[in-house]
């Protein structure tokens, strides 16, 4: 799939936040791509910059954040350099996004049918009387039972799982080419999580969309994704097809993440944890490898600029001492 021009290709993206505590270098040298029809997982612990990355791609960062370098080419257009008017034509229509905590992500005092219609009115040229029909179809597509009645419901009258279905309906309403799902199952109970993930996967496959699944849950990503991008403290540390990543993790952090993921037959007591925590990104001089302080493979070579070791065409690692 990588031979063809990818749908989205992010190169050397760097992003910083101005805060009272100083400049936070939230992303550095972030590169990855998403092919047409591909589901790519972006995995990392909280604070690794996954969500910020997705907000930067849609340019919905809050005003303290600033992209300082890099490109993100989508369908030939650099999202980071595009004019605001061009971005408005992209958001919701070419790239759509669903968020964690779906109940808060929906307007609490607007009927969900109206919220769907707002999106449909913005992005389709369907005549007014068709819009309501289209909105109900969208609700049916995400398998909301009794869609006609739910059309008139407010978010507080729905369960968390149903709210996330409504979010998905909003996202796919304009049939975008790329769906970004930012922790779509966080805060849902386990059964609902599975149902929601199945729904996302089905819709992406059926509508020939691509998707980016952002999650801290490596197991969740392994079930749905073709490839996985592992992030740590604003760096991409490893990129590999899902199977290769689990079979032969090359970056010490990835290996430890997999070791920390429970499987069917692992005992809780044998689960490993990763020592230390993310470095403070406000620090004036961060180590070149931001994992070095937590890494058992650390050698003095690790203080040199990071190489990008490529094991085969699809598997790359940013590490001096790969496994």
């Amino acid at each position: 799939m990588t031979e063809a021009v990818p749908l989205l290709s992010v190169d050397n993206l760097a992003l910083e936040f101005r805060t009272r505590g100083g400049l936070v270098r939230a992303l550095e040298n972030v590169s990855f791509h998403v092919g047409t029809g591909e589901i790519v997982g972006i995995v990392g612990e909280s604070g690794s910059g996954k969500s910020v990355l997705s907000h930067a791609l849609l340019r919905i960062l809050d005003s303290a954040g600033r992209v300082s370098a890099g490109r993100a080419v989508f369908n030939g257009l650099d999202l980071l350099a595009a004019r605001e008017a061009e971005m408005r034509a992209i958001r919701g229509r070419k790239i759509a996004m669903i968020f964690q905590n779906p109940r808060a992500a929906l307007n609490p005092i607007r009927k969900i049918g109206q919220q769907l219609e707002d999106v449909l009115m913005q992005h389709t040229h369907a005549p007014r009387h068709d819009i309501k029909k289209r909105a109900i179809e969208c609700l049916e597509q995400v398998r909301i039972p009794d869609a006609l009645r739910r059309y008139h419901a407010y978010p507080f009258e729905l369960s968390g799982g149903q709210c996330q279905r409504v979010m998905i309906a909003l996202a796919i309403a304009a049939e975008p080419a790329l769906l970004i799902a930012d922790e779509p199952t966080t805060g849902l109970d386990v059964t609902t999580q599975a149902v929601v993930m199945d729904l996302i996967r089905d819709l992406v496959r059926r509508n020939h969309m691509s998707a980016i699944l952002i999650t801290h849950d490596l197991a969740l990503a392994s079930e749905s994704c073709d490839r996985i991008v592992v992030m740590h403290a604003g760096h991409v540390v490893e990129t590999a097809p899902t199977r290769a990543l689990f079979a032969t993790p090359r970056h010490p952090y990835t290996a430890r993440l997999i070791g920390a993921t429970p499987h069917d037959c692992t005992d809780v007591r044998t689960l490993a944890s990763i020592p230390g925590s993310l470095p403070d990104l406000r620090a004036a001089s961060l180590p070149l490898c931001r994992f070095s302080a937590r890494c058992e493979q650390y050698t003095s070579a690790c203080d040199q600029p990071l190489p990008l070791a490529v094991f085969n065409q699809h598997h790359s690692v940013a590490c001096h001492t790969p496994l």
Partner: peptide, 15 residues
């Protein structure tokens, strides 16, 4: 304006 639902409307490309 800084709420989650406003972020949603921006991400959906509403005017």
């Amino acid at each position: 304006l800084s709420s989650d639902y406003t972020r949603t409307t921006r991400a959906m490309g509403l005017s």
